[in-house]
């Protein structure tokens, strides 16, 4: 276990230190006083756990392939950008474009997220990325989604569980919303359905993880209606061309 006071350290120098520790197989890295340093965990692989106190900067865990990062604070934009594997836990809010093009691993966010979250998430064989959001999400949620699973719990009962253009161009994967969403907010490539027992079973372990990370009561959360959004087909624009 290594503890680093990140206060005032330039992001390149900080990432240099982190990379070296991760590559040498360090099991736990504690980063204190992180204040906007970008690219933490970028393209790193391994089993290291990074604990972050403060607010890490944009593109945290971009291209990451393994590792667990737990942020005791808020996250900024593009967390888990094109991430391949690993786990991220955010004890707070996260910004825009979380999980863009994400292909594997999981992101758990206690509170709400910004715009364009989960755009073009994809899956391949056993790699199925998951994002669980405790609060609500902004516009363009799951746009062009091609695979994976996103769950929005809306635990603070925001009026808007997701923003507009939800699932536009969606052609794979699934979105679960705890509550309901107005049809006008949905992309026309999306079908909305009530969830069945199989869906409950499917989301159970993710919600359980969420409850464990952030200390919530599982039964209370699940004792609520959910809807599921999935794409009409794998080929949303198949008939557009002559």
């Amino acid at each position: 276990m290594k503890t680093i006071n990140a206060s005032g350290i330039y992001y390149r120098d900080l990432n240099e230190i982190i990379k070296e520790l991760v590559r040498s197989g360090e099991d736990i890295i504690n980063l204190k006083n992180v204040n906007g340093q970008r690219y933490i965990g970028d393209n790193l692989s391994g089993t290291t756990k990074i604990n972050i106190e403060g607010t890490p900067g944009n593109d945290m865990a971009a291209f990451m392939d393994g590792l667990t990062i737990e942020v005791f604070g808020n996250g900024q934009d593009a967390i888990g950008n094109t991430m391949n594997d690993g786990n991220i836990i955010i004890h707070g809010h996260a910004g825009d474009t979380v999980g863009y093009g994400m292909r594997g691993g999981s992101i758990y966010i206690k509170d709400s997220v910004g715009y364009r979250v989960g755009i073009h998430m994809k899956e391949y064989k056993d790699k199925v990325p998951v994002i669980v959001i405790g609060g609500s999400a902004g516009d363009f949620f799951g746009e062009y989604m091609a695979g994976g699973c996103m769950i929005v719990l809306n635990l603070k009962n925001d009026e808007n569980i997701v923003g507009e253009y939800c699932g536009t161009g969606m052609h794979g994967g699934v979105i679960y919303l705890r509550g309901d969403v107005e049809d006008y907010k949905l992309g026309k490539e999306v079908i909305k359905e009530k969830i069945d027992d199989k869906d409950y079973a499917f989301i159970q372990k993710y919600v359980e993880n969420f409850c464990q990370f952030f200390d919530y009561d599982f039964q209370k959360i699940m004792n609520h209606s959910f809807v599921k959004l999935h794409p009409i087909g794998k080929r949303p624009y198949g008939n557009m061309y002559a």
Partner: peptide, 30 residues
């Protein structure tokens, strides 16, 4: 491509993490 067989491979018009030169700089440095 790491996507399921038979599924359309769609490249959106913009990168949705790039809406400005600053965002482009972010991806370059990422």
């Amino acid at each position: 491509r790491m996507i399921p067989p038979g599924s359309d491979a769609i490249s959106p018009a913009p990168h949705h993490d790039i809406y400005s030169i600053e965002d482009l700089a972010q991806l370059i440095y990422s």
